[in-house]
Design a protein around this nucleic acid. Structure first.
Length: 749
DNA sequence: ATAGGGTTAG
C-alpha cells in the first residue's frame, strides 16, 4: 500500500500517518506503519514515539503507551502531554495529575496544550472543580490564550462533560461575557435544549441579562414570555437584571416605566403584571432601582422626579448607601441645585473619594471652581486620597480659570500619588492645563515626558501650539507625529486646519484636507469644512469659499454663513455664551434692537450660570472670580478705585510698582478696547498680565506683546460695518466687559 | 452558590 521503499520519507511522515491512522481508527494500518518505522531505524525518534503513545492510548492498550513512554531516551513536552491524554481518556485522573507534576519536576514547563489536555481531561471525567482550579492556576502563572481563549476552555470543558446538568449549562452560558454576547448565549441555549437538561430561572436570567445590557428590550420581553410559557416564574433578580441592564444601555424611559410599574402595581401594563408575580423587592433592588432611576432622571433632566427619588431614599433607609448618595449629589448638581447637592454631601457620614469627586465636579460645572478647590484641600485634610478621576475633574478647571499655581500643585500631587495605570487622558489634561495657563513650554515638557504618546496627547499639544499662535510648531509636531508612526484622527486635522486658518496657509490647508481624505481615510465633518472655509476666507478668497460651501455635503452653519447660520448655531449650542453675544450683535447691527435687547436680558436673567459671562483672576495663589452683572463683592470698591486710577494713568504715563504676574481668564472673546487697556495697564503697573479668552492667549509684558497680528479678512463674512461694542459696558472689571465676536486684536505694540 | 447593584471624568 502506501508503504513503498521507493519513496524517501522524511522524519515527519511516520508520525503524521500514525496520527491519521489513530484518528481513522485503523490500528492495523498503524501497526504496519510501525513495522516500517522500525525497519527504517526511526524507532527512537521522539516524534515517532509521541505518536505511538497517542496511538496505543486511543486503541485501548494503555500498557503499550506507558511502555513506549518509559523506554524513551529523551522526552519533550509533547511526550508528557500524550501520556496525560492517555490517562485522562481512560478515566485515570490521579495518574494524569501525577504525570503532570512529574513533568514539571523533570524540568519541563507545561505549555498551553499540556494545560489544555489536563483541563479538558478533568472536565471529561466530571472533575469540574479540578478543571476550574487548573484554569485559575493557569491564569495565576500568566498562561492566557489570546482572543476568546477563556471561552474556548469553557467550551472545551462543556463539550467534555457527558451528562450536561442544568448548573453546568448555566455556567457555560454565563462564561460568555455579559456585554455583546446575547446572540452567543441564546445560541448555546437553543443548541443544548435537546441534550437533556431543563432550563431554570437562572438559565433565563443569564440570557435576559445579556439582552437588557445590549438594550434589546423586545427580545428580552419575548424571552420573558417564553419563561412564563414553560411554567417558570421570574424572581426579583429578573427584575433587577432588567432595570440595571436597561440603565446601562441607555434606555432611560424603560427604566422609569419599570419604576412606575413598581410603584403602581394595579396598572395593566405587561411590566405591572410581571411585578405582581414577583416577590417583594430586596436590598439590591432598592439600590438598583434608585441608582438606575436617578441616573435616568439626571440624563433626562427631570428634577421633580429626582426630588421624589430623594424622598424614596429617605423613606427606605438608603441614606447609608454611598453609591445612592453620590447619585443624588450628581442628580442635584445636574439639575442646577448645588445647595441641595451640598446638603446631601455634608450629611453623608462616610464620604469616599468618589463622593468628593462628584461634588467637586458639580461645583466646577456650575462655575464655582474655588469651591471645588476648597473641597480638594478639605478632602486631603480628612486623609482621603485623590483618584485619577479627581485630577481629571480639577485639572481642566485650572486651565479654564488660568489657575497656574493650583495647577502646579495638582501636578505635584499627581506625581506623588504614583498611579500605576492612571487614565490615558491625564497626560493630555496636563498639557491642556499648562497651555491654558500660558505655560506652553511646560506643556511641551509634559508632552515630551509621555513615554507612550496616544493620539489625544498629540492632539492636545498641536492644539495648544495653535492656540498660542505658534503655527509652525503645531505643523512641525504633526510632521513628527507622522514620522513616529502616530495615527492622527479627525481632531488632529481640525487642529491643523484651524492653525492654517490663523496664518492664512491655504496650500497647507488643502494638503491636510486631502491627506485626511485620501491617506488616512478619516471621515470629513462639518468642522473640517468650516476650517477650510475659514482658511479660504482668511486670505480673501471669498468666491472660492462660497464655491466650496456649495459643494459641501453638509448644511452650512454659523461659522460659514452669517446671520442665518448664527441662529442655527445658536439653536445647536444653547449653552455657549459667545453665540448669544454674537447673535445679539448681529441683531443690533441690523437695527433689530428689540431682538437684541431681549436676547441680552435672556443672558442676564438666565437661570443657567453656564451662559453667564464670568472671569477669574489669579494673583499669586489667590483666586478671585467675577460674574457679569455682579454688584456685591468684598473687593469691588477697591477694584473700582483702582480702575479709575488706572484709567487716569493710562493718559498720563507715569508708572510705578511691580511684582507677580496677573492672570485673567474670560469665557468670552477679548475685545480691542480691553486688549489695549490691558496692555497699557501692564506698562503702568509694570506687571505681566496674561489674559486667556475663549479662543486665544494674550501676554502683556510691559512693552512687549506677542499677540501676532493676523489679517482677518474673514470677518467680512460676518459684518464688516460693526467694530464696536453693542452691549452695555457695565461690567465692573475690564476683564468682565462684554466683547464683540468680530473685533480682533490686530495690533502689535 | 450557577443569575442581579453602584456613584465621579472622558
Amino acid at each position: 500500500m502506501m508503504v513503498n521503499d521507493g519513496v524517501q520519507p522524511d522524519k515527519y511522515l511516520g508520525p503524521t500517518i500514525l496520527k491519521a491512522c489513530s484518528m481513522m481508527e485503523r490500528i492495523e494500518a498503524g501497526k504496519m506503519v510501525r513495522g516500517y518505522v522500525v525497519r527504517k531505524g526511526m524507532e527512537e525518534d521522539v516524534f515517532v514515539r509521541n505518536a505511538l503513545i497517542d496511538m496505543y492510548a486511543n486503541y485501548g492498550d494503555l500498557g503499550y503507551s506507558e511502555r513506549v513512554f518509559d523506554t524513551m531516551n529523551e522526552r519533550d513536552v509533547v511526550s508528557w502531554t500524550a501520556l496525560i491524554v492517555a490517562y485522562t481518556s481512560h478515566g485515570l485522573v490521579d495518574e494524569a495529575i501525577d504525570t503532570f507534576s512529574r513533568m514539571e519536576s523533570d524540568g519541563i514547563n507545561a505549555d498551553l496544550i499540556a494545560w489544555n489536555a489536563l483541563v479538558s481531561g478533568f472536565a471529561r471525567n466530571g472533575e469540574i472543580d479540578l478543571a476550574l482550579r487548573s484554569l485559575e492556576e493557569m491564569q495565576e502563572i500568566g498562561l492566557r490564550p489570546k482572543n476568546g481563549g477563556r471561552i474556548n476552555y469553557a467550551e472545551n470543558i462543556f463539550v467534555g462533560v457527558k451528562q450536561k446538568s442544568t448548573t453546568i449549562w448555566n455556567e457555560m452560558i454565563a462564561a460568555y461575557p455579559n456585554e455583546g454576547n446575547a446572540g452567543a448565549r441564546m445560541e448555546l441555549f437553543n443548541s443544548t435544549k435537546e441534550a437533556g437538561p431543563k432550563p431554570d430561572v437562572i438559565t433565563y436570567n443569564t440570557i435576559l441579562a445579556a439582552y437588557a445590557r445590549d438594550g434589546k428590550k423586545n427580545e428580552a420581553y419575548e424571552l420573558l414570555n417564553e419563561m412564563f410559557e414553560v411554567g417558570l416564574r421570574p424572581n426579583v433578580v429578573t427584575f433587577n437584571i432588567l432595570i440595571s441592564g436597561y440603565q446601562k444601555s441607555g434606555l432611560d424611559h424603560e427604566v422609569l416605566k419599570l419604576l412606575q410599574a413598581m410603584q403602581s402595581p394595579h396598572s395593566d401594563s405587561f411590566v405591572s403584571q410581571l411585578m405582581r408575580k414577583l416577590i417583594p423587592p430586596d436590598h439590591v433592588t432598592d439600590s438598583v432601582v434608585v441608582n438606575g432611576a436617578l441616573a435616568a432622571s439626571t440624563d433626562l433632566g427631570l428634577s421633580r422626579q429626582g426630588k421624589e427619588l430623594h424622598g424614596y431614599v429617605v423613606r427606605n433607609n438608603l441614606e447609608y448607601n454611598v453609591y445612592v448618595l453620590s447619585a443624588l449629589v450628581d442628580m442635584y448638581s445636574e439639575c442646577c441645585d448645588m445647595d441641595s447637592a451640598a446638603e446631601v454631601f455634608w450629611k453623608t457620614e462616610n464620604r469616599n473619594t468618589v463622593m468628593w469627586n462628584t461634588t467637586m465636579a458639580g461645583y466646577i460645572n456650575k462655575r464655582k471652581p474655588y469651591k471645588a478647590f476648597g473641597l480638594f484641600n478639605m478632602m486631603q485634610n480628612e486623609g482621603l486620597k485623590p483618584s485619577p478621576i479627581t485630577f481629571m475633574i480639577l485639572m481642566p478647571a485650572c486651565g479654564e480659570i488660568g489657575a497656574l499655581t493650583l495647577g502646579k500643585e495638582l501636578h505635584g500631587c499627581l506625581l506623588k500619588c504614583q498611579f500605576d495605570r492612571s487614565s490615558i487622558h491625564i497626560g493630555s489634561a496636563l498639557i491642556d492645563m499648562f497651555a491654558k495657563c500660558g505655560c506652553i513650554w511646560e506643556a511641551k515638557q509634559v508632552f515630551d515626558s509621555q513615554s507612550v504618546k496616544v493620539v489625544i496627547v498629540w492632539n492636545s499639544m498641536i492644539l495648544s501650539f495653535s492656540a498660542h499662535r505658534m503655527i509652525e510648531n503645531a505643523l512641525d509636531l504633526f510632521a513628527q507625529m507622522q514620522m513616529s508612526g502616530g495615527m492622527p484622527d479627525g481632531r488632529t486635522f481640525t487642529a491643523l486646519l484651524s492653525a492654517c486658518a490663523l496664518s492664512g496657509l491655504v496650500e497647507e490647508g488643502w494638503n491636510y484636507f486631502s491627506l485626511m481624505e485620501h491617506i488616512y481615510d478619516i471621515a470629513l465633518t462639518l468642522e473640517h469644512y468650516t476650517c477650510m472655509v475659514r482658511i479660504l476666507g482668511s486670505i480673501g478668497l471669498l468666491d472660492e469659499a462660497v464655491d466650496f460651501i456649495k459643494k459641501m455635503p453638509f448644511t452650512p452653519d454659523a461659522c460659514i454663513w452669517d446671520t442665518q447660520a448664527a441662529r442655527a448655531l445658536f439653536e445647536l449650542e444653547l449653552d455657549n455664551a459667545s453665540y448669544y453675544i454674537l447673535l445679539s450683535n448681529i441683531y443690533a447691527s441690523t437695527g433689530l434692537w428689540d431682538s437684541s435687547k431681549s436676547l441680552r436680558s435672556l443672558v442676564k436673567e438666565s437661570q443657567s450660570t453656564r451662559i453667564k459671562e464670568c472671569s477669574c483672576i489669579s494673583i499669586g495663589s489667590r483666586l478671585h472670580s467675577f460674574e457679569g452683572g455682579m454688584v456685591s463683592c468684598s473687593m469691588l470698591d477697591d477694584i473700582m478705585v483702582m480702575w479709575h486710577e488706572l484709567a487716569d494713568d493710562m493718559r498720563d504715563p507715569v508708572y510705578a510698582g511691580a511684582s507677580k504676574p496677573i492672570r485673567v481668564c474670560k469665557n468670552l472673546r477679548m475685545c480691542v478696547d480691553c486688549h489695549t487697556s490691558a496692555k497699557l495697564i501692564s506698562k503702568i503697573v509694570e506687571r505681566e498680565i496674561f489674559v486667556k479668552d475663549s479662543s486665544f492667549y494674550h501676554y502683556m509684558r510691559n512693552e512687549l506683546s506677542n499677540d501676532f497680528s493676523c489679517k482677518k479678512v474673514w470677518f467680512l463674512l460676518f459684518n464688516p460695518n460693526d467694530n464696536k461694542h453693542n452691549l452695555d459696558n457695565n461690567c465692573e472689571l475690564m476683564a468682565s466687559r462684554t466683547s464683540n465676536e468680530h473685533t480682533y486684536d490686530n495690533d502689535r505694540t
